[in-house]
Design a protein around this nucleic acid. Structure first.
Lengths: 79, 79
DNA sequence: CGTGTAAGGAATTCTGACACG
DNA sequence: CGTGTAAGGAATTCTGACACG
């Protein structure tokens, strides 16, 4: 799954475009970060910046959550 | 030069990240659009959204301008 | 636990214009 | 011609909190 993709990991999107692309709410996106499931960067002003990888990961997370999986469990799977 | 690249043409970045990635000023980026050299999309609020392709094109434009080429000439080369 | 919302402040973006040349 | 800037408004993002459960 590790594609050799130049722009995939560049953190260039603000949360708004992320919610539009994933269909999730800002609240959900920030919460998944709080649960350490995604790791956006912060620009000089503190605004969260996301990559296309983050978008993909968010959609994956959302699907799992819908299936009843808890964030704690998803966090574990990172290791 | 037409790479088969999934995220290359997605208009997902605001002008701020564009200026950071290209080193250009907002004024320059907007002016090149006025001269019809780049074509960002607008989100529902009117904010300009750019793609990685736009970033590459902007750097190319900037280089030409520095070399003394006029925007009028660059515009012509699009056809 | 996961998500919605109101609250207030800080940072972003936009347009049209004046400036220099 | 190409770019800087001040001006004012509109939209964005952030945090911490209360709510439900």
């Amino acid at each position: 799954m590790t594609k050799n993709h130049p722009y995939l990991d560049e953190k260039v999107m603000t949360i708004k475009i992320v919610t539009e692309m994933t269909g999730l709410s800002e609240r959900q996106v920030r919460y998944y970060e709080e649960r350490e499931l995604i790791f956006p960067k912060r620009n000089s002003s503190g605004t969260r910046m996301y990559s296309f990888s983050d978008i993909e990961r968010l959609m994956d997370i959302a699907e799992k959550i819908e299936d009843g999986v808890r964030t704690r469990e998803l966090r574990k799977d990172l290791f």
